[in-house]
Design a protein around this nucleic acid. Structure first.
Lengths: 248, 248
DNA sequence: CAGGTCACTTGATGATTGTCAATCGGCGGG
DNA sequence: CCCGCCGATTGACAATCATCAAGTGACCTG
């Protein structure tokens, strides 16, 4: 593991409050690894052996059924993912693949489970983390069921802008096909919807997005803290943070 | 609170393992109440003051946005709901209304949060509960994104049958309009889909469902443990158990 | 530098799903 | 007992969204 990995992990809300000794023990059992882009890290249905912490790069969490596939989340550094499966010692519900060359730290689940039984502070951190993850997926589900594709796109674009510090312009942090799948639509539909949204306050050129009429876009998206907000703890990391990442 | 309420609550996985003294204290701060059918218990956006435990009756968890509404879950006794919001001390993401006259026990969130910080066994139970809830919503999301409405209905009907002990016939435990909303479709669509599914192994008459060709229905639903399963702990109770309840 | 791959786009078409309106039928209250 | 309410159903229609096919352009590789 690289020298600066440990402090970065320790700084995560999940690991920030636990006893140093327990943290050290956990990290001692862990090991770091580098994966190329496009590698399948986890296959849904497999036993949850390791809690993953993404230090660098990007990971797509996705699920398949029959011959279909959908993107459940895109994870960006520094974040842990698939905590819930680890805790329940249950099969992964999602697969994971790198979308870029990625540095990942793997923490054996057995150590993890032993630790939160011994360290009450860690247990509280796990509780907080899981509650945050749960609420994130609930938000995602609400968005899927209550909004149509145009509204989902509009609100996602707006959220991205907020994450970029209310910037009017930014770059899409992920490929459009991933975004489409994440938003529950086909790439074709996304492409057309983006074009049609140019009448409603955005301009898209490749990965470059410019919000030309924030008010108009906001009116369409009907931004709602109970869907689009985050629980505004410093940071919530886990399995399914719906939003990818800020951007330049 | 009624005499048999306490043992029933104590028997829940969430409360089963904690210290008796802590349980007693928690229950001392709690109080029971009876609500008529159709009453709005919780409005999304409100502060989470109480963990709710449904002892008797039925509760719909739903969410609204703009002028639309959707059913997120139907809770049946004995189960707690909206744990995550309580723990995070954050606004409810869902509303709750009784669908029948209901007995509900209300546990102040402040006591709750104080207790899992003191009682490691309770903390572990909360972790387990939240992880289960998280995974339940992930399953729900997968179903929504990967299956079309016919497939969602078919798999739901099959799941209900499994819950009823692989019974060929059973009664729908909830109104069809609720089911439709839960499954992410309109009542009209559900009605038509049910009729069309009569060519695929079911027979529906009012609330009565009979599975006439299990194999055929299963082929359509393509039952998948990673969507349709439950984590097969005894019981997982929480905010968003997607499935309603067994039935006669 | 040529060839190939892949993401993205665009057009044409069809399937799925939602909306609106009308009707039926059970159930409870007056 | 009858009326009114509400959920469920049905039909006609419209909107949304997916599929199929073809074409473009960027990027990587040989």
């Amino acid at each position: 593991m690289r020298a600066h990995d440990l402090p970065a992990i320790r700084h995560l809300p999940l690991f920030r409050t636990m006893l140093q000794a327990n943290f050290d023990a956990l990290m001692h059992a862990a090991y770091a690894q580098v994966f190329p882009a496009g590698l399948e890290l986890i296959r849904q249905g497999d036993a949850a052996d390791f809690l993953h912490v993404l230090m660098e790069g990007g990971v797509e969490l996705h699920s398949g059924w029959a011959d279909r596939e959908t993107t459940m989340a895109v994870v960006r550094p520094v974040r842990s993912f698939i905590l819930a499966a680890c805790i329940r010692d249950a099969p992964y519900l999602m697969s994971a693949r790198t979308i870029e060359r990625s540095h990942i730290v793997l923490i054996p689940t057995s150590d993890l489970r032993a630790t939160f039984r011994r360290d009450p502070e860690f247990a509280v951190a796990v509780i907080d983390e899981l509650a945050g993850c749960y609420r994130a997926v609930v938000r995602q589900t609400k968005g899927l069921k209550l909004r149509n594709s145009r509204e989902r796109i509009a609100s996602w674009l707006l959220r991205q802008s907020v994450r970029a510090g209310n910037a009017a312009g930014y770059h899409l942090p992920i490929e459009k096909r991933l975004l489409a799948s994440y938003l529950g639509m086909t790439p074709e539909n996304l492409s057309r919807a983006l074009k049609s949204l140019e009448a409603d306050g955005i301009k898209v050129d490749g990965a470059r997005v410019i919000i030309t009429d924030r008010a108009r876009l906001a009116a369409l998206a009907r931004f709602d803290p109970l869907i689009d907000g985050s629980d505004s703890r410093d940071d919530i990391s886990c399995a399914a943070m719906p939003e990818p990442d800020p951007d330049d």
